[in-house]
Nucleic acid binder design. Structure first.
Lengths: 193, 193
DNA sequence: CGCGACGTTGATTTGCCTCAACGATTGTGG
DNA sequence: CCACAATCGTTGAGGCAAATCAACGTCGCG
């Protein structure tokens, strides 16, 4: 059940009674996405956050030379948004789309703020969620700067065993901060063992 | 006044009445640090978070080859900790020390949890704090991967105008993810304009 | 004063990029 | 359903940004 997935995710950090669950579920918008469908486009103002029920999304930016940079993947049971646009209500610097057919819950900012008012425990939930994300971000920064590409790819495989074969190699290369050609060479090098 | 600094920082996102302020101030531990003094050492379990009143701290890790990697600087009016160790109560992978004489407030985890219980608004404060930090972390990842070192250094100067001349160059190089020699070359190249 | 940490500079090396060409696979319109 | 285009992954040649190594001048400090 889709609703159970998100309740379970939240229950990792806070506990909700029946009424709170019901209220929270009432603000969710279920969305089914085709492969390639866009959830948030560069330049739009992000008015919502997403929870991934199934499938896999990506968050990427485009630099001055038109090159894509994958900032994050979000698979089953992850949260994703363009936080900066969401917070400041300025045009998004990123685009979010579906790499494979996916299902998400959308939560509008307006509703989210009401949730925070009505069930302050949710402040705690997101405090912990962001806190944990910070740890991962720092890990990633450390990695990009100190670990050679081949190692980073191996770590990636362990971290995303479900997707590393199903999505285009170039997105993985972009996420790792290397060119698709070079990742291809790494792959064939690893295969020779 | 030291206490005013931190209250002002918190008041950016939530408002506190006199009693709440008093209670919060009562759990702070003021610490004066000499240059080079260590706040958290690799391998210890982090039991607190810090707010920097004055001076400048750094958070760094050491890789298998013994090389230091500066993950973050924290100057006046910033928060710093080893979040992972703090959350999971496992040995820290990072070390935090003072680059120049500094003053901080320490908040013990135990007290922090009581604050969250007694003044739930603080959940909100830290939720927003981490949310904003996430945005910065993502920016940094994007930068490291898509912007050449010289540009990154120029951005750094703008971001940390107070410290970029006062602290050893090698720490800045480490933060930027380049070698000290290369940063030195960048500096002299910039000077030639 | 002399020692150690630091910043600079040059020579050489390397990890990764760019460009280009080529099969393989996927997708699409007629 | 096929034909053709587009996208994708692979491989090789050549180039560049940044690392490494080494030598040297400088400064703060015991």
């Amino acid at each position: 059940m889709k609703e159970e997935t998100i309740i379970k995710n939240i229950s990792k950090h806070i506990s909700l009674d029946e009424e709170e669950k019901k209220y929270f579920l009432s603000i969710l918008h279920y969305k089914k996405l085709e492969k390639g469908e866009i959830l948030l486009k560069y330049g739009e103002i992000s008015k919502s956050q997403f929870f991934v029920i199934d499938g896999c999304l990506r968050n990427y930016s485009i630099d001055e030379q038109g090159k894509e940079h994958v900032i994050a993947f979000a698979c089953k049971d992850w949260w994703i948004s363009d936080l900066y646009s969401y917070i400041t209500e300025t045009p998004a610097e990123h685009t979010i789309d579906a790499l494979v057919p996916a299902e998400v819950f959308e939560i509008m900012k307006w509703d989210m703020e009401k949730v925070f008012e009505r069930i302050p425990k949710f402040e705690r939930f997101f405090r912990i969620l962001f806190q944990n994300s910070m740890v991962n971000q720092m890990r990633r920064i450390r990695q990009v700067m100190s670990v050679p590409a081949e190692e980073r790819y191996k770590v990636f495989i362990k971290q995303y065993p479900d997707i590393y074969l199903n999505i285009p190699l170039k997105h993985i290369a972009s996420y790792l901060g290397i060119s698709p050609e070079f990742l291809s060479k790494i792959r064939s090098k690893i295969a020779h063992d």
